[in-house]
């Protein structure tokens, strides 16, 4: 995985962010989601690196990045803090302006980057998410069932930690197996990256904190920014076999948050970069490189 890329741990002053860097060209930051690591990009990053300087990062708390102490208000794991991590990483690497693509939780960090650091983001892609606030304000029984983990993981410490920690491999297999096109879709090296992280209690705790933040402080930030818009071009991609497709008008939910939105569904489940790497690559090349 990531042949020709270099591994680097970037000190942001608040924590350490692990990245893989490869290629030459305009900077493109890639952010993963739950319960994964930067390894989700392993099938698209090498091709992107022929055109971009690719930075594939682990979000704080996940993978090999730092595990800052959680705070009662969950601010240590709010998307504003995670976005600040990434803005600082890009500063440290010498990139003033950059493009960013985020899947799942990384998409929420991308959303926050576009609002809090608008002057630095040139183009942004969000994969398989609708805005956090939109989900909470439009929840129904069906959606609560589809997204039960949002509610489960946001329960107070340490109930989800204990329940997941009793059998972390099982939880990982369930999540990766049921939201995509089946467990076999994942490369063994990528799976090793996910499991190595997930077997560590501090990673499970950080993921829970990520969801606790989403159900509290992130919503406060999103409500305060209700009238704010993402000003850069935004690409939204999502899976046709996923839970959003058919349940939400995904482009419409983003059109409420951004001025220039394009996008489409791809024939796959939740894990787009691993299920349809070629299509994701084509979409990224068209959107980020204009060709």
């Amino acid at each position: 995985m990531f042949e020709g890329f270099s591994d680097l741990s970037v000190d942001t002053g608040e924590t350490e962010i692990f990245i893989r860097r490869g290629g030459e060209g305009p900077p493109l930051l890639l952010l993963h989601g739950f319960p994964q690591t930067h390894a989700i990009w392993h099938l698209v990053a090498p091709d992107l690196a022929r055109h971009f300087t690719v930075i594939a990062a682990d979000l704080r708390g996940y993978g090999r990045s730092g595990k800052p102490a959680s705070t009662p208000d969950h601010a240590a794991h709010c998307k504003r803090t995670m976005a600040r991590d990434m803005a600082t990483v890009m500063t440290r690497l010498g990139f003033d302006r950059f493009a960013v693509a985020g899947h799942d939780r990384g998409g929420r960090v991308t959303h926050r980057l576009c609002l809090d650091h608008a002057e630095r983001v040139t183009r942004a892609a969000v994969l398989d998410i609708i805005p956090t606030l939109t989900w909470f304000e439009q929840v129904t029984a069906k959606r609560a069932l589809d997204y039960y983990h949002w509610l489960f993981l946001a329960q107070p410490f340490d109930l989800p930690e204990r329940l997941i920690g009793g059998d972390p491999d099982y939880y990982m297999h369930q999540k990766l197996g049921s939201w995509g096109s089946g467990f076999d879709r994942f490369a063994p090296e990528a799976m090793a990256s996910y499991l190595d992280a997930w077997r560590r209690p501090e990673v499970v705790h950080a993921a829970c904190e990520d969801y606790r933040a989403a159900a509290s402080i992130d919503l406060e930030h999103d409500r305060a920014d209700r009238d704010a818009r993402i000003r850069c071009p935004l690409l939204a991609l999502w899976g046709e076999k996923g839970r959003m497709h058919g349940e939400f008008d995904v482009l419409a939910t983003w059109a409420e948050k951004a001025t220039d939105v394009t996008g489409r569904s791809l024939p796959c489940g939740h894990y787009l970069p691993e299920e349809q790497p070629k299509m994701v690559l084509d979409e990224f090349m068209r959107f980020f490189a204009g060709g």
């Binding site: 929840v139 609560a144 997204y147 946001a154 369930q174």
Partner: peptide, 24 residues
Amino acid sequence: CTERFARAWWHWFFYAQPVRPERA
């Protein structure tokens, strides 16, 4: 089932998942 209900009675949706809640 509004945000308030989903937050307060999230266990309804957790329990309704196949197999996982038994294991957990």
